[in-house]
Design a protein around this nucleic acid. Structure first.
Lengths: 258, 258
DNA sequence: GAGGTTTTCGCCTATCAGGCGAAAACCTCG
DNA sequence: CGAGGTTTTCGCCTGATAGGCGAAAACCTC
């Protein structure tokens, strides 16, 4: 995460000035990669693609591809994903990090910018024969630095679940608390109580109940209320950060005053 | 922050396969940029560099430079910074984001990866004549998309101050609460009480008191205790995220169904 | 020593996460 | 149709944390 370093060592100032960087600039191949997350069978999965040739033949790699000269990284990734998966809509796409290690690719110098993509649990896109979903806790042999990128993605997702409403992109449009609980548990990697999940998300106004209730399953039990996300765009709902700005100006009358 | 987009539109699947991306790959110039933050005179400043030639002549730009073929982005940035500023040590350097807009640079296609660099308040590096510190709230005309990058950096810094100990890279090695307060207020953009600042940082064990006290200033007043940061590497001290793992200290709460 | 200044500490409150158990609302089986 | 089981939902409680306010501490100058 925190890529620290010690530039204390004196770098030899180069003769080339930034102003004249265009004289004979190095150029690099650049690829966009996607860590596509989806919760399947109570586990967080990532979409991988099996390489046919060297290097890393038979190993599994993140989907993505080379950046074209007329496109941005985001749309390049959308293009490559569309060519591989019939994902009509990816609920969330966010830049993760850029890897520039000189030897990260044996074929040569290729810089990679990774994105996080989230797919709703109610989608099951048809994928080519050389791609598959893998539980992030049980990955096959992976190519390049992709395992490390997936790990970065997991941590980012985990953190964002706790202080934003990103889960809207992982959960179906409507859901019960029990269903949403599976999504959160799969991503966070530990159990959470549905009681607390409901309370926190309702208090933060991340989710809201609809009028309808779920048809009770054959196992009996009280039918669950159907909920939906109040907003389907990323919102930071961080009621917990310290050092908040001073209390607002004259606030509107609070009702509950027992 | 949240780079959303709508990949719902159907991308035309391209004929080129990822496997054969090396047939005639596009190559791009790549530059590393630094948003160098320092608190000076109670305001958050950023180090900028005035361009002499077109495009954006006379405008101010982020320091940085072209990536070389044998270096990673991080060390490339260290090299360019060392050539421009005599910063013996930058306390913190973290990748921010990569900009790939096709027309972000009129000279041609240049991809830029921005970093955040933090400089301690007790340093006053000598800088070349064409560089200067500017308050981030009062920036001069800026070049390219650099103003927007600075904005991203501010938000990242602001967020990280509230749930990590990054402030160690902005504050001097030892300090009083009053001095540290200036750092926090400058970055956060609003006043905070020194009482609360001290309590929160002590409880989180981000800072610790030393034996010594400050020599009282001429204005009188009780001499302040000298504090230091307990650690000088990034640590997330987020006592506030929701959905924490169950309190069991014995077993790690895995998703194993109860 | 009196008065002013700055820091530090204790007391208090509000808010939030989270545990626990009871009540609600459904099922199936006898 | 009622008893017992299941799942969801809600209320009550606790503990931890952010933060406001004021008093006490520790220094200065006059």
């Amino acid at each position: 995460m925190s890529s620290r370093q010690t530039p204390g060592s004196s770098f030899a100032p180069q003769t080339s000035d930034v102003e004249t960087a265009d004289q004979s600039a190095d150029r690099f191949e650049h690829e966009a990669l996607a860590v596509v997350f989806q919760v399947r069978e109570r586990k967080l999965h990532s979409l991988l693609w099996q390489r046919a040739h060297e290097p890393f033949a038979q190993c599994w790699a993140l989907p993505g591809g080379a950046l074209g000269s007329t496109e941005r990284l985001g749309s390049s990734l959308g293009r490559h994903l569309a060519a591989k998966v019939d994902l009509t809509d990816i609920g969330f796409l966010e830049q993760l990090e850029t890897r520039s290690d000189v030897d990260r690719d044996p074929r040569g110098r290729i810089i990679a910018t990774a994105y996080i993509a989230l797919v709703s649990t109610d989608l099951n896109p048809t994928i080519p024969g050389d791609t598959a979903w893998f539980p992030v806790d049980d990955l096959p042999p992976t190519a390049f630095d992709h395992a490390s990128i997936i790990q970065s993605g997991r941590e980012r997702l985990r953190a964002k679940l706790t202080y934003t409403n990103v889960a809207y992109a992982l959960a179906p449009r409507v859901f019960t608390i029990a269903e949403l609980r599976v999504v959160y548990e799969s991503c966070l990697g530990h159990t959470i109580s549905s009681t607390n999940l409901q309370r926190v998300l309702l208090r933060r106004e991340i989710i809201e109940s609809t009028a309808s209730v779920a048809s009770p399953s054959s196992s009996g039990g009280r039918p669950a209320t159907i909920y939906r996300f109040s907003e389907r765009t990323l919102r930071v709902t961080d009621p917990f950060a310290a050092f908040r700005p001073p209390a607002r100006s004259a606030d509107q009358g609070n009702v509950a005053r027992s």
